[in-house]
Every structure is written in C-alpha cells, then in structure tokens.
Write a protein that binds this DNA or RNA. Structure first.
Lengths: 207, 207
DNA sequence: ATTACTATCATCCGAGTAT
DNA sequence: TATACTCGGATGATAGTAA
C-alpha cells in the first residue's frame, strides 16, 4: 500500500481535512520534500486524495484501496478459521469411540440438538490438512464440561460443527486423552461410514 | 506492502511451504516471470522468505512486516469504528420505510428486543460523514437473514445499534435494494422526527 | 518444463531552483 | 515560508536467452 496514503490515514485525513506540509511528509517518511510533493500530485491525479484550501482529504476511492488490503488481511488472519477445510481418509477406530459417544451422548445432545450415532468416524488427515490442523485452536469451540458419573470422571470435550461431504457432523476433540493429532473423530446423527464410501473425505467447518 | 509477499500470504505460505512458479506469480500479479523471479530473489536476500526444495515459506521477519501494517490498520479502524459518529439532517423518505419496518418488525424485535416504530428516520449525511460512511463495513453488524413470507422474498438486513441525539436507535442497511449511500435509515422504539426537531442530527454508534 | 542472467527501457527519487 | 518544476542518476521492469 502507498505509504504516503497510509500516513495521511494515520493522521485521520479520511475523517477530517488535514493540514500537513510536503516537508513534514518527507521527514516522516524519509523522503525528500520534492518527492512528497510529487507523490501528493500523483495521488490527487489518481483521485485518491483531494486538496482544498491547502488541506488534504482521502477520497472514497482512496479509502477503497486501503479497505481492500485491510479486508484481505482480515480474511487471512481473522476469518481463515471459519473456512477451515480438511481432507483425509477413513481409518478404523479402536471401538472406544462407541463407548465414549454413549457416555457423552446426553451432554452432546444438549449442545448439538441431536443424539449422535453411537460411534465415531475416524479420519486420518493428509499432510496438507495436518498443517492446518493447528488452526482449529483458533476457532471458538462448543464446550462440553467435564463431569462425573457413577464415580467415574469424564474429561471435557471441544466440539466443532462441520460438514463432511455435505452431511452435518461435528469434530470432537477430547481434552484429556486423545490419539495423535493426525486423526479427527467425527460424530453425526447417523452412521456415515457406508454412506461416505471409500474415497477421499472432505471436512469443512461451519458456524 | 510488497504485493508478492501478500500473494504468498494469501496462499498460506506462512503456514505451509508453498510450491508456486515464478510464471504463476507473474501471471497473478500482472508482471513478467523474470520480474517475479527477481522479486523472490530480493525477498530472499532480505530474509522475508526462504526457499527449500523449490517451495516458498514466509519467514518470521516477513510476517513481522505484514503484521506491522495489519496492526496499524487495526488500530485505525477498530478503534475508530467504535467511536464512529455521523452527522446530517433529516430528509423525507418515500414512505416505503413504514412498509418495510412492518414486514421486518418481528425479525427486528428478535434482534433488538423491541418492536420498532413503523417508519424510518432518513438522515442525509453531510460530506464529512459520507467519507466515514464506508467505515460501517468494518463494524460487526447485527444480521437479519433474508426470508420468505406469503410467496414474497425479503432480503437480508444489517443493523447497527446507535444513539441519535441520546435516543437509542439503530441504523438499518437493506442488503438488496437501498438508496444512495448518503442517506441512513434509522429505526427506534418510537417516532422521533418531532422529538429531534430541525437541527443537525448526530448519530453515534454503540456496542 | 523451470529459474535467473544480461541488456534495454521505464519509472522513481533527490538536488537545484523557479514561483 | 510554501509547492512543484526540470534534470541526472538510481532503482525497477521487460525481453531475450542461457542453464
């Protein structure tokens, strides 16, 4: 982004006309007065700023340029997580998924609105998805608090709603014990393993 | 900010090594392959990226440059947005405000907690406010999703809570059709036009 | 196919200076 | 004081081509 424009923005020239000399601009940006002058003429010609009575104001067009970049950066840093997508393939679990989903079933229903099928779909992530895996941490999880039942203690869960090949599902991350970071456990209303078949699995996080 | 670096960032080269050819960079940024190549060599010399096995990765130093600018923009917009203030004067609407507020009334009540007076206050913004108008985009809106009723389709709304001369109100931005950007439509619990009188109107956004 | 060198052309910047 | 012109040198980009 144009550094002169950014300076003007910092000085609020998008809100109120700003009085500033080319000498000052040059000093602040380590450039000559002559160059600052030329840059302003340039910005004016491009209709990104306008000058009136010796004061500078950033125009709509100028703001669009800035907001364009700001928007892109926001997308990258703030919203990336919401578009998080993983891919991988189904692997066999150890059968413990079934046990846990039954134990947590009521709690999960409170959060998701449905009782999940008693079993988990285990997806082994491919290399590219594995790198994105850590971005899950930046998402706001649905939290199932730890609880005690029949004298046994059950650890908390983080749940993230997602779609797996168009089916509404949820990723479940047990906070206590869990297998390697390369396998995601998925729960859903119904048994999905057969419906999904043998191909590559796509997991897309949803709000 | 360096546009090549921004491109690499968009392609997640800060998260995982990215395979991309100089030809592709050139094509995406409208520059020659030769120039893309030179720019990469440059970025590498400045230690903003590093290359390994033909893949590119943005370094810590590279990210610092990006986050520096992003931080500055956040300071400007996030803080400003919360203090966003407009001024202007009341203008006559076309009466359609009344119709729409009635249609959307229930949805609005769900979001704001009260049924708005059936009519909108139309404020024509002055020149200075007009420039700030686009900063609304940076704020988090209250969203009324589009819906269908009696076979007719109603577009979504963005709503922003505000105070108009001390009265709690809300700015309503229809996402489909809307008049010029220079008029803001305001809704409130009660009819405000008479209470506000003829002077200048001040609109202040609130959380 | 790829990257990146060299040569040439274009653009940007700073110094001097006119206004 | 101020802005902004011209001009020469520096930096940047493209075309051609080597590796």
């Amino acid at each position: 982004m144009d550094d002169v424009l950014l300076l003007l923005l910092k000085r609020n020239a998008h809100v109120a006309p700003l009085r500033i000399s080319t000498t000052e601009i040059g000093r602040m940006l380590n450039m000559s007065q002559q160059n600052a002058s030329r840059r302003l003429v340039e910005l004016e010609k491009e209709e990104k700023i306008l000058r009136k009575e010796g004061k500078l104001l950033i125009t709509k067009k100028g703001m669009e340029e800035i907001l364009q970049i700001y928007g892109e950066l926001q997308d990258i840093f703030d919203k990336k997580a919401k578009r998080l997508e993983f891919s991988g393939e189904i692997v066999e679990g150890l059968g413990e998924g079934r046990y846990y989903v039954q134990r947590y079933g009521t709690k999960i229903k409170e959060k998701l609105g449905y009782e999940p099928y008693p079993g988990t779909l285990n997806i082994k992530l491919d290399a590219a998805s594995l790198l994105k895996r850590q971005l899950l941490r930046e998402m706001e999880p649905i939290v199932v608090e730890e609880f005690e039942e029949s004298g046994r203690r059950y650890g908390g869960l983080f749940i993230y709603k997602c779609q797996v090949n168009k089916y509404d599902c949820a990723i479940v991350i047990p906070l206590r014990t869990h297998h390697g970071i390369d396998v995601l456990e998925i729960i859903a209303r119904e048994r999905l393993k057969e419906k999904l078949g043998k191909g590559k699995i796509h997991i897309k996080l949803v709000d």
